[in-house]
Structures are given as C-alpha cells and as structure tokens.
Design a binder for these strands. Structure first.
Ligand SMILES: [Zn+2]
Ligand SMILES: [Zn+2]
Ligand SMILES: [Zn+2]
Ligand SMILES: [Zn+2]
Lengths: 146, 146
DNA sequence: CTTGAAGCTACAGTAGCTAGAGACATTAGA
DNA sequence: TCTAATGTCTCTAGCTACTGTAGCTTCAAG
C-alpha cells in the first residue's frame, strides 16, 4: 500500500490533484489508515496512471470518467471507447487548424512591422482591423488545451 | 451613441462580456443615460473591436490591456507591442507542436483498434501504457486556447 | 522523545467568460 | 396613452482542471 505522496510520485501527479480527483468522484474514495491517511493499492496506481496519460493526451475529465468505466467492463464492445477517442482526435484537429491560422496571422503581423512608432506599428494596425488579415481566423468555437 | 446591445452587435461581443470587460477594467466605465443605461461612443466601439480581434488571435486579456495602453501612446516606439506579439506567436507555436504530437498519438490509437472487445481495445491499452506511444507527447506545460 | 516531513480538511483563487434572478427602462403597436 | 415586449440594470453563482493557503494531525527517523 502506498501513501498519497508515494502514489503521486509514482504516477507523476501532484498530491492535491489526487485529492481533487477523489473529490469529484473520478477516483474512488481511498482506504484509510488508523490515523485517517489515505492508502492506495497497486490497482489504484494503475488507475491514476491511466488518468494521467489520458490527461496528457488532452482528454477531458468527463471523457476520462467514461473511459475508466468502460475499461472496467472488459467484455463489452469497444465502440464507445473508440468514439470517445475519435471525438478527441476531431477536437484536436479543429484546434490545430485554428492555431495554424493564428500562427499565419501573427507571423505576418510581426514580420511586417518595421519597428518604428506605435502610430505606424503593423501589430497595432492589424489588431485594430481584421480586414488586414490574410485568413479568416475567426473563432469557430474552440476548447481549451493544456 | 450606442446602447450596450447595439455596441455588442456592432463589435460581435456579447453584452455580458462587455460588462465583464468593464468590471475588470479592460474597458473604461461607460457613460450613462438618464435611466442609468450604458452609452458608448464610436471610439468605444473601436476599442472593443480591437479587444475582440486580439482575443480572436489568442491574446490574453492581460496582454490586451498592455496593447491597449500602448496604442494610446502613438508616439512611443513600438518595441513593446512587437514583443507582446512575438511572445504570443511563440506561445501559439508551442501549442501547435504539442497538439501535433497529440494528433499523431490519437491517430495511431484509433487506427490500430480493430473494434472488438474492450479487453483488446487498442485505445484503452495505449491509455493504460505510455510506452505504447510513438512520441513523447508529455506535457511540457501548456496553456489554453481560446 | 523530539523534530520535521508528510498528511488531513476546508476554503479561496486562477482565466474568461456564461447564465440566472428580480427589478427598472425604453420602445413599438393598438 | 396604455400596454406588452424587449432591453438593460446589479448581483451572484457556475464552468474546467486544478493550485495554493491556513491551521491542524500523524508518522518516521534519529
Ligand atoms: Zn511594431
Ligand atoms: Zn483578423
Ligand atoms: Zn477499440
Ligand atoms: Zn503516451
């Protein structure tokens, strides 16, 4: 059995994050020692490692919740899990496309500025006026990365 | 003079968002009508349009605050504005790189799954075990996109 | 037995909004 | 002119996924 600190180290997750996951019901309530400290089994470590890896791949906690409960039913068909992964892939692709067009515009802005006064700054100018942009980078609904 | 609703329509910004911007001091306090409703000038519209465009390009509200105050001093050199834009570009590039590697992994996961039971699902398998990943997509600090 | 690290709970804060409640203002039509 | 519909007001709470704080208790090493 591991304490929360050891578990965190082993999984690469900070201690408060583990407690947070328990609080929101993503992880089951941990067993407690006589002195009320949380104790974790190896299985709990696997679960947390799964969570961490899915987070690193950008899945939301809600998606991870679903993935966890799917992975608890090994005999079920995996279509639901695949659908979640595909949705995540689509989301990532959407963000990639958006970021790519932002990059184009930012590059243009920065490259076109000659470095004079604010009054002549291309950065300020473009920010004031979208019609100076080359692409339609406009906000087709994004999510958050991290 | 425009009411807040007209202003929002003209700039493409929702009414509560305008009030929020005022509340956090990003926009100056608006004049008020006899009946205590906010009234905006054309200059206020320009300012809000600037904010919206900068948001669409992914700048944080803090960065926008700085850009706005820079743009109020047209005779100053524009180095500071350019630096903000360059930092934003760097940030976007960082996120792009990360998302690109996430995309690789998600694609692999999805492609490798044959669509059987959860027990054999490649999606679940990869999520359980990072060593099945092709790249090192690991979390080098990300931010959020819009 | 003492000390310091690690654990506990509970609450506040982050970014950038969004949504709702309940009251007042304005405007268009009958 | 009255009324109904829409718009606006303030205030509060909620969203994601944590992170940090305060003030305490427990545990392990020396
Ligand atoms: Zn410049
Ligand atoms: Zn633009
Ligand atoms: Zn599958
Ligand atoms: Zn991986």
């Amino acid at each position: 059995m591991l304490t929360i600190g050891k578990l965190g180290q082993a999984a690469g997750v900070k201690v408060p994050t583990i407690r947070y996951y328990e609080q929101i019901g993503l992880l089951p309530e941990a067993e407690r020692s006589a002195g009320n400290q949380r104790l974790y089994s190896r299985k709990a470590l696997d679960r947390l490692t799964f969570v961490r890896h899915a987070r690193e791949l950008g899945f939301t906690l809600d998606a991870i919740r679903d993935l966890l409960s799917l992975s608890d039913n090994p005999d079920q068909p995996c279509a639901a899990a695949d659908a979640i992964a595909k949705a995540q892939l689509a989301e990532i692709e959407k963000r990639l496309a958006r970021l790519a067009s932002l990059k184009v515009e930012l590059n243009r802005m920065v490259a076109q500025c000659a470095g004079g006064r604010i009054a002549d700054c291309r950065v300020i100018e473009v920010l004031s006026n979208h019609s100076l942009c080359a692409t339609d980078h406009r906000h087709p609904q994004a999510g958050n990365d991290h």
